[in-house]
Each structure stands twice: as structure tokens, then as C-alpha cells.
Design a protein around this nucleic acid. Structure first.
Lengths: 341, 341
DNA sequence: TACATAATTGAAAGCGCTTTGGATGCCACT
DNA sequence: AGTGGCATCCAAAGCGCTTTCAATTATGTA
């Protein structure tokens, strides 16, 4: 069933039917009713590809999903998507997801943009000096970046959390508790948030004349295994750190296993603060020793970015170009005063 | 840059350029080269919406993502998507994801199908007597179901794991270890896999003349909290079960917390076997007591389903309509002989 | 009654691509 | 010279929708 058939069935022109469906004012209310009724009976749905071709709008936002045979799927991705979806469903938007090799992201993003399949783009997993940024700017398509790109001019639309502030505050708390030997379990070095969090730690330590030793920093994939390994490494250092900053609750999962295996008590022998993206699977309050965290909801960020993206496509008023969300520092049992020896 | 401009630039007709790009044989190799060269220089990409309109093929597979403000995102969804993506990227396919309220899935699926945006559909989270099945059959669009629908005629294309067999085998192992008091922590009752797993347990028990008490069965969301609650309930039963079957490693996470909090030792006082979807985040071998599991890779299933879906769209040979994968039973430390009192 | 105005409706062009059904030129062969 | 076959290429129709421009009818006013 297409427009032509429907209009013939109704004895109307395609024009009128189309107008009736799209809410144009110049169509008689009675005929509009008649059209709507016929739509219900026939189950007619406009062909999206044709609409897209005619209007240039597709009602969809595009994103690139990094994937490859060895590539681990990322819980954060799913959670973020849920946030995007929550907002998208309200506006009858959908997503076009282009899976791409992580090495091919710039090209994949361009393909997606030029394909004419999407109205706007969403970009995440930002790196320092991210090469996607100049590409996006050269496109004439709305986009919002989740995160920022260290080293790039911040003149692009983004939503980020204050990673530096979060880890600065967390470090200060641990300093106030008397800790002096710190370690940082971070995400991969090239990722923007990792850079900023490291800076946050370093600047808080610097205020007390302390520094972060190279040995006390790990930059790894944020998996539970890597957390275990990193923590094992820290624990066997001659001057073992007593305060751990950790970029993810997933890393913390492994780290805590290492702590337990070493026979140490979390929150007493060793203090840990992790960043919490509010993953439904990994609630810090459910750890055997509830975790002190810096918190910011990934899902909420997804909702907000979808709002901005969809709003821009629909020309629904201006949106702030840059947003920086503060994180919350939530103290639970995994932090305590420095142990005395 | 569109076809028309490109063809004018080359002094050729749109026809020839189109043919050159799509690998038709009747175009001179020299001109094909010329066209390809021009494409490289101009960065021309065909408009997907127009291609779709002209050919009826879009190079995309559609899926519905259940989402709502209160709706928890599901780790399994992300992992499965990674599998789909891994295969899709090889064929330059993408996904169209329609977020929809869980109560609106049938309608959402139909909208997606009729929209003309997708070539094939993928469906998951199957229930008993699933209402989406008749709808899918009435469509003339290829689809593959992940899972099955208990109570429906199995005449639709699916890929499922042998849930019943998996839990039958797991139960038998525990029986052989001398256990007689069983409990089952299952997914929501209406879900197909939950029905089959329960049947597997029940039939293994029945062979020994045992039954599964109502009190020893939980049907919940597969979250860590629900796992904790369910296990707490089991532990305070007058005749506390010593053998637990668990539908997910996520549930197991909470269950084990409850076991620990009760001062019991996993694998000694209480044995547990969980189903493992091979989530990168939750490896059974990394639990403090490594988990005995029934294993089947969700991601591998995603790859396979994408193969079938894309293959069907591309008419690349016949595929089996029904596939039932066996699971592996992997014994680790969370199972042991029944304790003596 | 005649005319301007508003309310409805339609015909047709166009979005960018594929594909059918010819054209055209060139060659070998009779 | 005439013919058929082959290799190339092109004009134009059509996919299903939106939208411009124009036509038609109904309404109100002088």
C-alpha cells in the first residue's frame, strides 16, 4: 500500500492525502478525518526512504559502533544507547548504527554522514587531538560529541563530565584522610577522559608537594582482568600505595579481587575511589565493601545528547553548545584513614 | 556531489556511471577505471535513500530495542549487538535500531518493517506464545529469531541454544554429586528460555523422583540485586537447598554475595551452576570461587544470525532454518559434593 | 449582481538512484 | 557491399514521497 493507491482509494490526490497526514492546515477537517480513518484500516505507512529522499530528513541519528573480531563489547556503550533510545522513542527517531573497525572510524563516520541515511551524528570514545573533529566540522550536519578532545580547540558541540574536577576532588579527599602513597588505574592513555583524570590527580597531589610515580599508574582497557593485574602490580611495589583512584567500577571489580587475594582489607589497609557511570549491572553500593565513587550517569548523558541532537534537527530552539556536568563524590566504605604501621 | 554531477563531469551518462560503480560487465574497463578514479577524487558516495528507493534494498537489518525511562539496559543486548556488528561490517551492512516501549514491541516491529528502511529483521527476548511471530510471518521480509517461542509451532527461522538440555545436564551433575535439595534462580517467567530451563531441571529431578518446590524457584529480572534477594530467601528456608541452578552470571553475582554474607562457603556448603553467556565483563573464572557454568557465546550467536540474515538478503545460498546450539558444561570450583551434616 | 478573498484540492516537478529498451559504431564474415 | 554480432553507451521511466504553483469552489462584501 502506497500513497498513490491510498489516494485512489479515497478519490483524492496524493497531494491532499500527503498534506492530511503531515498536519498541514489547508486541508478540510472532514477529509483529514477520512484520510486518517483509511490509514487505520489499510495499515498504510509511508515509505521512509522515499520521505527521506523527498525531504532530506530521515528522523534518525547515526553512530559508529567500534567492533572487530577481537574487540570487546563495552558495557558503557549499551548503557549510553539506552539513554539515547529513551529520548529517541519520544520523537519517533531511530538510530542507524554503522559497525566499523576501530581503526576505520573516521572513514566510517564520513560514509555514514554522506550516505544520506541520517540527520545528525553522535560521537564518543574521544581521544586527544581526535581526527574525527576536523572531519565533523567540515560536514554540514549537526553533531554532538560525548566527551571532549584534549588538545583540540573546544569550539565544537559537546557534553562532557568534569573528569579533572572529579578526580581532583577524589584525590583531595584521600589526602585529607592522610594518604600519601597514591596509585591511579586509568583507561587507555590516548582517551580524553584518561588524560583529564590523570591531570586531576596530579594537580591535587601537587598542591601537597606530592607526585604520582610512573609505577603507580596503569593505562589499560577497562576490564576486570586488567584491574586485577594492575592492582597486583601495585601491591608488590616496595612502597605499596594505600590510596587508589580508579577510572571505572569495572576495573575496581578486578582490583578488589586482588586486594582480597592479598589478604588486605578494603577501606582499612587500602582505600579506593572509583568512577561510577551508574551501570545497572555494577552498583557500587552492592560491592562487599560498598565503594566510594565519583558518580555521573551515563544514561542521563545519553538522554540529554539525544535531546540536543533531535532538537537541533527539528529546529526546536537553540541548545547550549557546550555542557560540562559536575560529578558527585559519594563516600561509602571503601575509603578510610591511612593505616598506621 | 550526486550521480548527475559526477556523470556530467565525466562526460558520461548516469547509466554508465551507475553501471561502472555497481560492477556491471557491459562497461569498458578503461571507462570504469576513469569513473572509479573520479569517485576517489570527488569523494562521491551514492545516496542510500535513493538507492533504497530504486532497488528496494537498503543494506540494513532492523531491530527493536526495548527501552523506557525505568527500563534497565541489558548487558546481553550490547554483547549480542557486538556479534551482529562483527559480521555486518564485513558486508557493509548497518543497523536500524528502533527504540520502543517494551509494551509496544509488536507495533514497533511492524512500523520498522513497513517503513522500507530495512531489508531484514532480527528479533530477540522471545516469550512463550510470542505475538510477534504471527506478525512476522505475515510480513514478506526475511527475519531470524534469537531463541524460540514455547507453545508456537516451530516453523519459523530461529537460532537457539539448547536451554533445556543445558539445565538438564547441570542438574544431573549436581545429582551425581549427591545433592537432593535444589533451587532455581530463573529469568522472568514469560520468557522462553526461562520456561525451557525450568523444564530441564524438572525433568532431571523427576528421573530421581525429586521435585522442585515452588519456594525454591525465583523468576526475576536478571540483575545482581534480584540474585541477592532470591538467594537470601533460599538460605532462610527451613530445608535450605544445597544446589543452585542460576540462569545468569549476573544473578550469580548477587547470589554469591548472599552466600558470603551468610558465612557459607561456595562449592562446599552450597553448590552453584550458572549459565554463562560469555559476557566480557563477567567471566566465571574470575569469580573469587570460579563458577561452574553452562556456556554458550551470545556474541557468536550474533555473528551467526547476522550471517543468515545478510546471506538471505543477498540471496547467498540457502541457510538452515532452525539451529539449536548445544551448550558446554564447564566444571569449576563452585560445585562440590553435597555437604554432610 | 459582481467581485475580491479565503478555503480546498490537484497536476506535475523533483529528490538521486537503478534499470529497461534501445541506439551506435565497429568488426569479422559471406 | 551487405549482414549479423558484439561491445559500449545512453535516454527515459520509475521507485514513493513532498511541495510548488495553479485551479476550483465557497464565502463575504460592495
Amino acid at each position: 500500500m502506497n500513497l498513490k493507491q491510498l489516494s485512489e482509494l479515497l478519490g483524492l490526490s496524493q497531494t491532499t492525502v500527503s498534506r492530511a497526514l503531515n498536519g498541514y492546515p489547508e486541508v478540510n477537517e472532514a477529509t483529514r478525518e477520512r484520510v486518517l480513518q483509511a490509514v487505520k484500516e489499510t495499515g498504510y505507512r509511508p515509505n521512509k526512504a522515499a520521505q527521506r529522499l523527498a525531504t532530506g530528513k530521515a528522523g534518525s541519528i547515526g553512530l559508529v559502533m567500534p567492533t572487530a573480531p577481537g574487540h570487546q563489547s563495552d558495557v558503557h556503550f549499551g548503557e549510553f544507547l539506552a539513554g539515547l533510545g529513551e529520548e529517541a522513542v519520544r520523537h519517533d527517531f531511530h538510530f542507524v548504527i554503522m559497525p566499523a573497525d576501530p581503526d576505520d572510524e573516521v572513514a566510517a563516520l564520513r560514509r555514514l554522514a554522506i550516505s544520506g541515511n541520517v540527520d545528525a551524528l553522535f560521537v564518543a570514545y574521544m581521544r586527544g587531538h581526535d581526527p574525527r573533529l576536523p572531519m565533523l566540522k567540515s560536514l554540514s550536519m549537526p553533531y554532538v560529541v560525548h566527551g571532549r578532545s584534549f588538545g583540540s580547540e573546544p569550539d565544537y558541540p559537546y557534553l562532557d563530565i568534569d573528569n579533572e574536577g572529579a578526580f581532583y576532588d577524589a584525590t583531595r579527599l584521600l589526602l585529607q584522610l592522610g594518604h600519601t602513597r597514591f596509585a591511579l588505574m586509568n583507561g587507555q592513555m590516548h582517551l580524553d577522559f584518561a588524560i583529564r583524570r590523570k591531570n586531576g590527580v596530579i594537580s591535587a597531589l601537587a598542591e601537597r608537594g606530592l607526585a604520582l610515580d610512573e609505577d603507580c599508574m596503569s593505562h589499560t582497557l577497562m576490564t576486570d582482568e586488567q584491574g586485577l593485574l594492575a592492582m597486583e602490580h601495585f601491591l608488590q611495589l616496595p612502597e605499596r600505595p594505600t590510596a587508589i583512584l580508579c577510572s571505572s567500577t569495572v576495573l575496581a571489580l578486578g582490583a578488589i579481587r586482588a586486594v582480597n587475594q592479598a589478604g588486605l582489607r578494603l577501606g582499612e589497609d587500602i582505600s579506593l575511589i572509583a568512577h561510577d557511570d551508574v551501570l545497572p549491572l555494577l552498583k557500587p553500593e552492592n560491592f562487599s565493601v560498598p565503594l566510594t565513587t565519583t558518580r555521573s550517569s551515563l544514561r542521563a548523558a545519553g538522554v540529554r545528547i539525544a535531546q540536543r541532537l533531535i532538537g537541533t534537527v527539528k529546529q526546536a530552539g537553540p541548545f547550549p553548545e557546550q555542557e560540562l556536568w559536575k560529578t558527585e563524590l559519594i563516600v561509602r566504605a571503601s575509603t578510610g584513614p591511612v593505616p598506621r604501621f
